[in-house]
């Protein structure tokens, strides 16, 4: 009871403070508020297209102007997967009390034909859409995180509708760890390459020297696609790694 009252007081004080601060905010949608009319946002609105050739300002801010943040956000996703594997993964023994659901592929009893046929049809479409979301991140809402989640979901769908083992046959543990690392390495590799050319980390412009027939501005646009692909790979692999570890309590075997 005491903890409850204490908790209520904490929540109340937090809420009261937040509301107190809101009273002072600029008006909703005010075009002259500091966040809207500040030097930084004005710069983005006026110069993004000229700087990067990317019509989607959000993507440009995310993957170029503040690309360093996004690189570490990718690392955060990567850490989430590695952390779950580090805690859950059981290498030598099956955890006590866990009985893996043995599934015999010859006896297709528990699996509904409607579901499995539908999913077999739907998975390629999902994957194609995921690639579209990644590739069109420059022009429309989308990008590596969203595309990666969709692509990862398609593998999870395979695991749910058939079983974990057949999903792992396509996407084994070695493979998803490798792809997760490779994705983050692609992103940071862009940074390393710019360093080797003597520019600052993630200054994509200089990559026009190794990209065929591009100027500095186009090189930024292409590099953004490159890092988005890196993000997609990491997110896809980690999504599936988390599902596989959680659903089998780290044993990576058994039915679901």
């Amino acid at each position: 009871m005491g903890m409850r009252i204490l908790g209520f007081i904490a929540v109340f004080v937090t809420g009261a403070l937040l509301t107190y601060g809101v009273a002072d905010f600029p008006k909703w949608g005010d075009p002259h508020s500091p966040a809207n009319a500040g030097e930084v946002s004005t710069y983005f609105i006026q110069n993004t297209k000229a700087d990067t050739h990317v019509p989607n300002i959000v993507t440009a801010v995310l993957a170029d102007y503040r690309g360093y943040d996004t690189m570490f956000e990718t690392v955060v996703i990567f850490i989430a997967g590695v952390a779950i594997m580090a805690i859950l993964r059981v290498l030598a023994t099956i955890p006590p009390g866990h009985q893996p659901v043995q599934y015999d592929p010859r006896k297709k009893i528990a699996y509904d034909p409607i579901i499995s046929v539908t999913c077999r049809l739907i998975v390629p479409v999902i994957q194609l859409f995921a690639l579209y979301v990644v590739a069109h991140g420059h022009h429309s809402p989308g990008g590596g995180f969203q595309g990666g989640v969709i692509l990862g979901a398609s593998f999870i769908l395979i695991a749910i509708t058939s079983n974990l083992r057949s999903a792992l046959r396509r996407f084994s543990e070695k493979r998803f760890i490798f792809i997760a690392c490779a994705g983050a390495l692609i992103y940071s590799g862009f940074g390393l390459t710019t360093l080797l050319f003597g520019r600052n980390f993630l200054d994509y412009g200089v990559l026009s020297k190794i990209m065929f027939d591009t100027d500095e501005v186009m090189a930024r646009s292409h590099s953004m696609l490159g890092v988005e692909i890196g993000v997609m790979l990491t997110v896809t692999a980690i999504m599936f790694a988390i599902y596989a570890n959680l659903s089998s309590r780290g044993a990576l075997r058994g039915g679901l």
Binding site: F25, P26, S33, P34, A35, G38, V40, S41
Partner: peptide, 8 residues
Amino acid sequence: YLYMQTGA
């Protein structure tokens, strides 16, 4: 909150 007030 700071960003709302400062835009930076």
